[in-house]
C-alpha cells in the first residue's frame, strides 16, 4: 500500500532529511508478509519504500533476504510461549544478520518482528533502534510528532520537529 501511494504521488516522501545525517537502515522481511503470502514482489515494494524514505545510499540489505530471509523468532506464538531463552537463541541468526550489515537501525514492518527484534537488540546489548515504517514515513514528511518517537534513537529524536 505504501509503495502504491508513493508511486501515485499521494505520499510525497523523500530522503532529504537524511542527506547530511547519513543514518543507515536495514529491513526485516516479515515471513507472514513475504514468504508466506505475497513473495518477492512485496519484498521489492518494501525496499522501494525504504529507499524512498531513507535514501538509496543509506539502505543496507541483510543476507539472505526476501523470500529466503530468516524468521526473526517472534512468530508462531513464540513471544507468548514462555520459552524466552529458546526464543532468543532462535533469534541469534537474525541478530547476527542485522549486526553484519552494520546499519544503525533495523526497520521491522510487522508487529511480531518489531517486538522480537527490539528484544534481541536490547537483550544482547547491541542496542540498535528498531522502528516501524510508519515512523520513518512521517519523519520524512515532516509530520512526526514529539510523542511519536518512542523507538527512534537519540540521533533522530529532534529531526523535523
Amino acid at each position: 500500500m505504501y509503495a502504491r501511494w508513493i508511486r501515485e504521488g499521494k505520499l510525497p516522501v523523500n530522503s532529504d532529511w537524511n542527506k547530511d545525517l547519513g543514518v543507515t537502515f536495514t529491513v526485516q522481511d516479515p515471513c507472514q508478509l513475504v514468504r508466506k503470502s505475497l513473495g518477492n514482489p512485496v519484498a521489492e515494494d518494501l525496499r522501494f519504500v525504504v529507499r524512498s524514505v531513507v535514501g538509496d545510499d543509506n539502505f543496507i540489505d541483510m543476507w539472505p533476504n526476501k523470500s529466503n530471509n530468516y524468521c526473526c523468532g517472534g512468530g508462531g506464538g513464540f513471544l507468548q510461549s514462555g520459552y524466552s531463552d529458546e526464543r532468543r537463541a532462535y533469534g541469534r541468526i537474525k541478530l547476527d544478520q542485522i549486526l553484519h550489515t552494520k546499519a544503525d537501525y533495523c526497520i521491522a514492518p510487522c508487529h511480531n518482528c518489531h517486538s522480537q527484534i527490539h528484544d534481541l537488540s536490547e537483550h544482547s546489548g547491541a542496542n540498535f533502534p528498531v522502528v516501524h515504517l510508519w515512523t520513518l514515513i512521517c519523519l520524512s514528511l515532516g509530520i512526526l510528532g514529539e510523542n511519536e518517537r518512542e523507538y527512534l534513537g537519540d540521533d533522530l529524536k529532534e529531526v523535523g520537529l
Binding site: 515471513c31 514468504r35 508466506k36 523470500s67 529466503n68 530468516y70 524468521c71 523468532g73 517472534g74 512468530g75 508462531g76 506464538g77 513464540f78 510461549s81 520459552y83 529458546e86 526464543r87 532462535y90
Partner: peptide, 12 residues
C-alpha cells in the same frame, strides 16, 4: 513444536 515458528523457510 512450540519453538518452531512455522515460518516455512524449510519447505521453501
Amino acid at each position: 513444536v512450540w519453538m518452531c515458528t512455522m515460518c516455512r523457510r524449510c519447505i521453501h
